[in-house]
């Protein structure tokens, strides 16, 4: 059993990271008071922007890692721009945020494939090299018993970027006055405004960060396990939304929820190839993450920590 866990851990983490960063983006948006159901679409935008950038750089730039970094940056920028659509609609125009998010999702899928086909001649964009996978030999971390082989073996550098963002987010939200103000906009915007906070500006910040993070999530899919843009992230954005709620709108909760999804899906995916797991009916393994989420929500939702003003136009 240890052998199996040790073996699949790097892949479970690889699957977790895009979910985590996207859910974290959703967290900023909802904490500021805007529901962002368009995470799925924003992920697709990042997926596309990274693929296109790296693809275009391949003939002119030989440094693969630099290409990847530029691809990630392009994705973040594209995500911010695309999320402006949602921000303008839901903040300035007081739109129904669910509707606007749905429109973002629909638009992203159609527009990116269309652009891909017109720019590269194919709706699928293929890149040569993504992020290399390495053991973390720094301080001998990979040699730590148990934890070393689980967390520091065969990692992508994008994983560490996301972990750093997670820690920074936690710090900003809970340890700075800025974070306090942001959260106030999602709880009591009117009180926040009387306290002199620019609610609009805070909410713009929240939504744009969600765009940047979700797009980064999509880009990480591209440079780690996918290697090819295909026009869809197959519901991962919605899963991130679920992880956000499952994680009770808290950075560490979101980390736990995303990791649970990542691990459970990986187990379900590889179950057919692992003799020890073959005895379990696949239908149980495949539905396991979803059923457990429902059960967990039943246990934790009574004392829900949802931002009170989330989804309500100010």
């Amino acid at each position: 059993m240890w052998e199996i866990i040790r073996q699949i851990f790097p892949y479970a983490i690889a699957f977790t990271i895009p979910l985590l960063i996207t859910a974290l983006g959703g967290l900023f948006s909802e904490r500021s008071g805007v529901v962002n159901i368009g995470l799925e679409g924003l992920m697709v935008v990042g997926f596309f922007a990274a693929a296109l950038t790296i693809y275009k750089l391949e003939p002119v730039m030989s440094n693969a890692v630099l290409r990847v970094i530029l691809g990630l940056l392009a994705a973040v920028i594209a995500g911010v721009i695309f999320s402006l659509l949602h921000a303008v609609a839901s903040i300035h125009m007081k739109a129904n945020q669910v509707i606007s998010g749905t429109a973002i999702n629909m638009m992203a899928g159609a527009v990116t494939v269309y652009l891909a086909r017109n720019i590269t001649g194919s709706g699928n964009i293929h890149i040569e090299a993504g992020v290399p996978r390495k053991d973390v030999s720094f301080l001998g971390l990979v040699k730590i018993p148990v934890l070393g082989p689980l967390f520091f073996r065969q990692t992508y550098f994008t994983t560490w970027i996301v972990i750093a963002i997670l820690l920074a987010s936690w710090f900003i939200l809970y340890k700075t006055s800025f974070g306090l103000r942001l959260r106030a906009c999602g709880e009591h915007p009117h009180a926040a405004e009387s306290a002199g906070i620019n609610v609009y500006r805070m909410r713009y910040f929240g939504v744009l960060v969600s765009g940047a993070f979700a797009a980064l999530g999509g880009a990480i899919i591209m440079v780690t396990y996918s290697g090819e843009f295909s026009g869809t992230v197959s519901g991962l954005g919605f899963l991130a939304l679920a992880a956000l709620i499952f994680g009770q709108w808290k950075p560490l909760g979101v980390l736990g929820a995303s990791f649970f999804f990542g691990f459970a899906s990986t187990i379900a995916n590889v179950s057919q190839a692992v003799p020890a797991l073959m005895a379990i009916p696949p239908i149980l393994l495949k539905t396991f993450p979803y059923i457990v989420t429902l059960v967990a929500l039943v246990l934790f939702s009574k004392s829900s920590q949802a931002p009170k003003a989330s989804g309500i136009p100010f």
């Binding site: 073996q7 699949i8 892949y11 690889a14 699957f15 396990y225 996918s226 290697g227 090819e228 295909s230 869809t232 197959s234 899906s265 990986t266 995916n269 590889v270 057919q272 190839a273 692992v274």
Partner: peptide, 18 residues
């Protein structure tokens, strides 16, 4: 192994790794 779909890229990577 039959993965069971033609689009689950993540599963393709994980199964191959196995």
């Amino acid at each position: 192994i039959y993965e069971g779909s033609f689009d689950n890229v993540a599963a393709g990577q994980q199964l191959a790794a196995q």
